[in-house]
Amino acid sequence: MRLALLFSGQGGQTPAHWQQVREGADGELGAALARVLPAFADPLSAPAPEQLATNRIAQPLIFAQQMLLWGRLQSSLPKPICAAGYSLGEMAACSAAGAFGAAEGVALCAERAAAMDGAAPGEHGMLAVLGLDDELVSTLAAENRLAVAIRNAPRHLVVAGPRAGIAAVVPRYEAAGASRLVHLAVRTPSHTALLTGAVAAFKQRLDVLSDRRLAFPVFSAIDASAARMARPALDALARQICTPLDWAACLQAVREMQPDAVLEIGPGNALARLFGELAPEIPVRACDDFRSPDGIVRWLTADS
């Protein structure tokens, strides 16, 4: 079994994911979460659904949920041949490959979130635009003080920037014939130059981590380059904060590894759907499609 992993980013988190982490995180991981999320330390407290979209809650929460799932699955599955992470998900991909531990990753995600919030105060957001030529999407975005942040697939881009700009560009995309517009549950202009100020501090934090050989290659979401050592993977984590992502190229790189199956770990199933559209010949599922980790293991080991 040649298994590839995809780790989802922000946008699909729900109160159910908060509850999963609440019930499953203990030991060092639970203590790390309690330090960065005050509500986690109080068993009677939980963030409102709209609060789950804030960086300071979403980033450590999603990372912890992903690492809990991977921790439960790892011993029952073959070693992956590669991993990739969508935006925040690249933190989990690096951790799963051994660049840093889960508890340390929670702290890093909290620092990442704080750096991003500090670099771009105010009201920002991200909008997925489907069905329009890339050049038109980019042109209309620039005219409204936005920038292309992610290329998911041909004619499927994500733009980011001030919420006022997003509000202004929506009717223009509609008039141009966009097949779908989706406001993402993210409140920061991720992967744009607006977050340049967040990179140096986060890179300085990552630079103190030890270099080591990764357990499997991690593809950078920036350009699909494969890191087999921790240092280039960590450098990419810092750069991607303010650099557009070519997720389409990343998925193609995973496809070219010829996996027998692909598993998306984290909230939602958007990455599984994107990969399924690109490579319908390769079985792909998301953890959220299953009721328990046992179901995921049964699916992946059914023919072995």
Results as ranks from 00 to 15, higher is better:
A16G: 03
E50N: 13
A201C: 13
C94M: 14
R187Q: 15
V208D: 10
G71E: 09
L251T: 10
L245F: 08
E277T: 14
S292K: 04
C250A: 15
L194T: 01
A142V: 08
R239F: 09
C250I: 12
W18I: 07
L251K: 07
R212E: 07
P171W: 05
G165D: 00
H156P: 00
G276C: 12
T196A: 14
E135W: 06
A236K: 07
L29Q: 03
A221H: 11
G89S: 04
F290M: 01
V297M: 07
D289N: 14
G165L: 02
G197I: 08
E104M: 09
D303K: 13
Y173R: 00
L245S: 02
E277G: 15
N144Q: 11
L237T: 09
A58V: 11
R273S: 15
T301S: 13
L88P: 00
L140M: 06
A168M: 01
R172V: 11
G9H: 04
H191G: 01
A103F: 05
A221N: 15
L234T: 09
A107G: 13
Q204H: 15
A93Y: 06
Q74I: 10
A236M: 08
A233W: 11
D223H: 11
Q13D: 02
A185M: 11
P283G: 09
I241N: 02
H191D: 03
K203L: 14
A201Q: 13
H191W: 09
A230V: 10
L300I: 07
W18V: 06
P162V: 05
A168Y: 03
P293F: 09
N144H: 15
G12D: 13
A48V: 12
G165H: 02
R180G: 01
E104R: 14
A128G: 03
R187D: 13
I296E: 00
A175Y: 04
R56M: 04
P38K: 08
G177A: 07
R112E: 04
A142S: 05
I282M: 07
F7Y: 09
A48R: 15
A34E: 00
F63E: 02
L5M: 02
M1R: 12
N269M: 11
A4M: 02
Q51E: 15
I62E: 04
R163W: 05
G118N: 11
E23R: 13
M257S: 13
D235H: 14
Y86M: 11
V186W: 04
A141H: 01
E50C: 12
P78Q: 07
A167R: 13
S87N: 04
A226Q: 11
W299G: 00
C287K: 01
F7G: 01
I296T: 02
A302Y: 09
P259F: 02
R2K: 14
A215L: 14
M1F: 07
A141N: 01
A302T: 11
L37V: 12
A261W: 05
R187M: 06
I265V: 15
L214N: 07
P121E: 05
A142W: 00
A58R: 05
E264K: 05
I150W: 03
V129T: 07
A178Q: 03
A200V: 14
Q240D: 06
P283H: 09
G71Y: 09
R35A: 15
